[in-house]
Design a protein around this nucleic acid. Sequence first.
DNA 1: TCTTGTTTACAATACC
DNA 2: GGTATTGTAAACAAGA
Length: 812
Amino acid sequence: MADPHATPVSPISQVLQSIGLTRDDLLRHSDQMRQFLTTEDANSLRAFAAGSSDAQNAIVSMIRSSRARSHSRSVSRPSASTVSQTPPPSTPVKSEPMEPAIPLRHMDSMEMILERKNRQAKREKRGKKEKERPAPSPSPASAGFSLDAFMQSRDSRRVPPADQPEFSTSTTSQETQKDTLPTLPVTPQHKNYYRDYDTVEPPSSRPKKDTLAPTHSPTPARSRATSTSSYAPPIVNEPLDANPVTPRRNHYYKSPLPSSSPPQSSPFATPSARQVINLVSSPGPMGPLPNEDEYDELPYKLPAGPYSTTRPDLSYAALIGQAILSSAEHRLTLQEIYDWITIVYPYFKRNETTWMNSIRHVLSTTVCFRKVMRDRSLGRTQWAIWDCDLECFANGNFRKEFCAELREAAKKAPPKKRAVDDSASGRKSKRQKKAVLESSSPAVPTAPAPQVPFHPSFGPMPQFLPLFPPLAPTYHQSYYDRCTQLPADVIFPPLPSSSNYVHVVSTSESLGNEASSVPLSSAIKSSDIPQTSPTPQSSSIPALTPNCSSSSPQMPSEDHSQTDIHVKVNKEPSPPLETGLTLVDKRGSDNVERKQDVTANKTPSKKSVALPPMPESPTLDRRPKSKKPGKRAPIPPPSADGSYPRPCTPPPRPTTPRNRGATQLSAVRTPLSHKGLHMSPSASLVHYKSHLDPPPPSTFHQDDGINPAVFDIENVRTPSRRRGHRENGSTLFPPVTPKKLVFPAPSSTIESPFRTPGSRSIFDPHDPSALLDEEFATLGNKVGQESPVGLFGGRRGLLYESPSISSPGKWF
DNA sequence: TCTTGTTTACAATACC
DNA sequence: GGTATTGTAAACAAGA
């Protein structure tokens, strides 16, 4: 123990020695740096840096050494705190600064180092603050805001140039200008492009602003890049522009919003707290970007490379897609999306309302972005991209043509004009074109260079979609997740011949009337249908319906949509599951599979199914009405935590094409509009109201009394979540762990690979078979217990027709 | 009051 | 010119 050098101990001293510096020197440098930070005078820093290359080297080496040893953040932390805050000279502060170690990225300049230091310090402080402060857990947002807002308000007024200068200096480029501007004259108008103003931003209140300044919020990464056009190469950190301006420092309030995603402790999450340093001046909720280390913590991954401050050529949808796909689970909260965008594309600043509004607008209107409701306690709703829609976001771009729904629709419906082609050659916005031209470089395609790294999907997209190995892995995948991640096929394996039918029959009893009505149809009802099948009408629904009910079909539908994509992949994963099952068929034709599985049913495969009859139903448009009703039917809340897997299966949503592009309708979320629509309007409306507005699930429960989960199933694709939360209202129900159901589950042990053999008792919400069974059962009840086949074959009509007739509620 | 989400409307642009 | 896409602005509602 006794290391003689305990004090100096660390390699630092060694380094210093090697360098020829003394600790005093180091301290001095540190002080200088601090001053710099405090002052944020880039110039000084540079001067400093220039002057003391030695110091830098030393620091760097230190860092490296430290890193090499271990990440030991903790170790340095203590010191770090000091640093940030004008550290007491007493402690050799230094050490800490570096410790963060430079990430893989090159920290070329001292600035980078400093930033890191600050970050660390912030973190520490953050932690402290959190502890000290109420730190409202879950819904940080509000908290964050308040604080931020407060600070900002202050800052904004004060904000003096000080901040700006700081940043500005760092930024150098455009950003600086912008940033500075804000304070200027600008009126706070949010409107048009005042991004600059952001800093000031007042009105809106967004917190932002904070002062990161002190710390120079330089977001690490972002700062670097300025490259306008594309996102520069991944890592390059160029100090250059680096100047890093932290692109948004001002904006950094950013994450005041942490609120959104509760689960993660994303740095952002507690942003406000974070910057302890300047609390006084500015709490700076935002906090600098997390270090690489921190990145892990974030719900999303940030692309490496410098971030261009220029406006990306990508559409908002593409940006959103990148953001969402950068998350392991492919879902982020609005806040997180904002954060991601502001970080990766500094061009977008937190304070601005324009782009944020656009983001929201796109989320709401774009089908591919599915809303996932979560328990409030967990946080706000998340926006997800389903596997089936990954193609849409290939290469970081957004091509609606590839939306599962659209594709399906396209299949059924005559290809519209541009539909498919477009994607590739299709129209591009000017920006895109420019981008393309300009940068053959990665701009567009790779544009989101960042993405590339994280998005597995991007690369090979299609195939992998279902798997998502890349991202997900990091996160904990709960059982549920895994299941969900599995290809739709797997998840919803073709009905095991054995189980379903039998089940159906048997279950019918339990189901009872209502159940029948409710469950299936209901399940399908608003939420499901719409959600599940994007193009419900078009393909998905029909397909589904054929089987029995929309619900069941949905599953398939999902497949459908994804079929193309997933198919290949699925096979791999699925095998185990399906052993018995014949997933294969599905792929080939989901429909078919079902048929087979269903065995008896020859129900037309979905495709054939197209059964449009029903879905087509007219109501597509109704959306408008829905307005309130249900806004979008959010997808059932996954386990908010993430347990919720991305629904691979694209629920067939009725893409009711509003007027505009189909793309806009978001299937999932806006159930009302989209969903219900297809079915008979009246019915749908009713149904929605009943379901959406009120707790829909309730009906279900009662119906069978069986599993809530089952009900969810109805919803289609993702089996479970809904039940949980809704029923309980709050409970997210952890889909993950299979519940033991009370009810009898007769026989289908074999059915789902997931479930423990032989025991149906264990309820596996994810178990497709179970779901299907439920549905069938329900159908059976309705139908009269006809064999599934009967349902399909004969029933088809019934199904479709019945909805309205038999029970409006059901369908919608 | 703020955030989030939805919806509508309009304008600009691109494609056919 | 019509249609589609995208972006923007705004109104509104719901929830915290």
